[in-house]
Amino acid sequence: MAVNCNQSMKIAVGPVLFGWPEAKIREFYLALAKEGSVDIYYLGEVVCSKRSISGVIWQIDLARELRGYGKEVVLSTLAMPTVEAELQSIRDLVAAAKAMDIKIEANDVAAVAIASEAGLSFVAGPHLNIYNHGMLEQMCRQGAERAVLSLELPAMDIAAIIGDTQIQVEYFAHGKLPLTFSARCYTARAEGLSKRECRHVCFLYPDGLEMRCLDGEGFATINGIQIMSQRPFTALNHMSDLAGMGVDILRVSPQASGMSDVIAHFRSAMDGAMAARDALFAMSDGRDPGSTFCNGYYHGRQGRLWIKA
């Protein structure tokens, strides 16, 4: 029975993708740590280096603190480093991770290179574009012990990609989907500012800035240099199938509110305390999940859609 399968799965909380002040990030992770339902914490700035106002030191301190709760902590790196200072922040994270004997999540090939050279095992993050078995094997060769496959892949491809690879697989199972990266800050642009003089305006939008079509239909979410899905993706109801495909960990991506409930629903479905379908229904406040969530990518369809199982 699939429930047994579920029980061996773990829940991870992904890095905060939005612009949150350091205090809010600390508070968010520590509150979850006290609840104790999460198995793995990812933390670190993935989207925009301008948000890390006091560098990476505080992230490393927070990582230490979270480890005190006896759970795994992973330091996530920036997805689009281009300049020396950004590469240096990756080197700093790799050095800190090595000293603490924890992993980093590599979100750019630069991070793969730096971790591999340092002999540090890493998580191949969702922005490395793992679409096939060959790429996954190459990441293993460089020292990856876990991988998050490309978010736009249909779930039915997962088993074929894993093949005989001895690697943990993590699936982005809940949260707004990070869809793009650009050189330009769209939040600043919407506010009539430039990226250089952005005044950290993204901090005003802890769940991102809504972007609509001209006919008023919801379209997407602006998050600094990133565009995300309008609705959160969820694969809560496909948990058993994912376990059957060889997925070991389900990632929940942070949002400004309600995360404790989301994690509780995943936990109860995973532990068999509740049927996944019922957990989804509860998470949708009793409404049609299609009015709240999207899951098209899971089914190999348009990412914005909700496809009924």
Binding site: Y131, S150, E152, L177, S182, Q302, R304
Partner: peptide, 21 residues
Amino acid sequence: CVMAEGRCWLSSYVTGDSPNM
């Protein structure tokens, strides 16, 4: 192309087909 090429899934988000796949 204003996005980082290869790291943009806007097309598959709307149409199901993407540059990468």
